[in-house]
Design a protein around this nucleic acid. Sequence first.
DNA 1: CTATTTGTATTATATCATATAATACAAATA
DNA 2: TATTTGTATTATATGATATAATACAAATAG
Lengths: 130, 130
Amino acid sequence: MLLKIDMSSSEPIYTQIRDQIILGIAAGELRLGESLPSVRQFAEDVGINMMTVSKGYNLLKEEGYIEIDRRNGAKVKKKIASDPVFKEQAQKKLRLLLAELAVHELTPFEIQQIGEEILSEFQTKKERGE
Amino acid sequence: MLLKIDMSSSEPIYTQIRDQIILGIAAGELRLGESLPSVRQFAEDVGINMMTVSKGYNLLKEEGYIEIDRRNGAKVKKKIASDPVFKEQAQKKLRLLLAELAVHELTPFEIQQIGEEILSEFQTKKERGE
DNA sequence: CTATTTGTATTATATCATATAATACAAATA
DNA sequence: TATTTGTATTATATGATATAATACAAATAG
């Protein structure tokens, strides 16, 4: 799994790490239970600070995507269950995003089209990788 | 159109303003061409600084949602067209959000169900308000 | 013309988020 | 025992966010 960090982005590095790992899981590039690189390895590869990677990993841990311990490092969880708190927050984000799209003269049909494309993209990537 | 600012949120006030105005437009609470409150009025009503409101308005202006001039104040644009840049950025955000949902054991069907609900909520609110 | 109402610019201040750097520590393993 | 994990600590730097108090520019209403 290759990670690209955009140093010129206003998006914080540790959230870039978070986002790409989640996208990686959804697309099957990272499988459930799979190990992530050590924070030192990751930091060296990408050319950033160790603690920034640690911060990204900890965010993923708090959000329930990965588990971390000293002996085994960081691994993608085997079961990432949807709790009510997550679902509500995600719905809020989705509401805003759909509002933006709707306001930009995109029809509900077009919006659903885009959503379907993305979801099927995850599906095909997963099928190819497994 | 009533605006609620959460002072305890980590979300910046000026983006809270932005988000709620976009949601207001999508739901028809704010109509195309309608005037927004003056920055002073807004600031006084909500109990925040004038320049924070100005910052929110300017963000909306840069993103193409409203237009501002000294004589008439701020108004929702009459045509909010979707340019390619916006569409690409929105698609990126949607990709991440759908990835989060998919990883949380939500099926494509359930995800689309949620999306449909939100879109039809906008629609009904609009129909009632007009 | 004058007073009022727009948004904006300026300057200063305060707080927090982000990121780096250089070490040091704790825990487990080979 | 040496190595590899993640973590903690302290310091530093930069930028974002928000407020405060004025002042200015542009247009309108009286």
